[in-house]
């Protein structure tokens, strides 16, 4: 993995992760808010694959850009049917749904399962979100 967009979850370079492709293909609804997903970049689909965190599922209402740095507005929009809202963990160095809007589910490749290299920072990624009713 390369790039600063997922700091501090992933380092800028030199890490190897395992991706779970099968579960998403068999159960497309298994994607939850807070999951780390791997998807084709909507703006450079031929060359680039991005890894981001899921913020919103279809039907959710999300704030376009809480930081106000990328998108000119901080309005709230509804994520359309069949799309998800994704965002990098490092908000100031990430090109994500704030710039290109909701991402169609058809671009998702899979979910990040575990980091296997370097060995001393081996991690299995669990969903960190808790739901408040």
């Amino acid at each position: 993995m390369t790039g600063p967009s997922m700091l501090p979850t992933f380092a800028i370079e030199g890490e190897i992760v395992i991706e779970d492709v099968i579960t998403y293909r068999l159960f497309p609804d298994s994607i939850k808010r807070g999951d780390l997903v791997v998807a084709k970049s909507p703006v450079e689909p031929d060359t680039t694959i991005v890894c981001k965190r899921v913020i919103g599922l279809p039907g959710d209402i999300v704030c376009v850009d809480p930081t106000g740095e990328y998108a000119p507005t901080s309005e709230y929009i509804k994520v359309p049917e069949g799309h998800i809202w994704i965002s990098g963990d490092n908000a100031s160095f990430s090109r994500d749904s704030r710039t290109y809007g909701p991402v169609p589910k058809g671009l998702i490749i899979g979910r990040v399962l575990a980091r296997v290299w370097p060995l001393r920072s081996f991690t299995i990624f669990r969903n960190p979100t808790t739901t408040i009713e």
Binding site: P28, P80, G82, P104, K105, G106, I108
Partner: peptide
């Protein structure tokens, strides 16, 4: 042939 953006199936 493309996946529908509204329904990936």
């Amino acid at each position: 042939l493309l996946r529908s953006p509204e329904d990936p199936n």
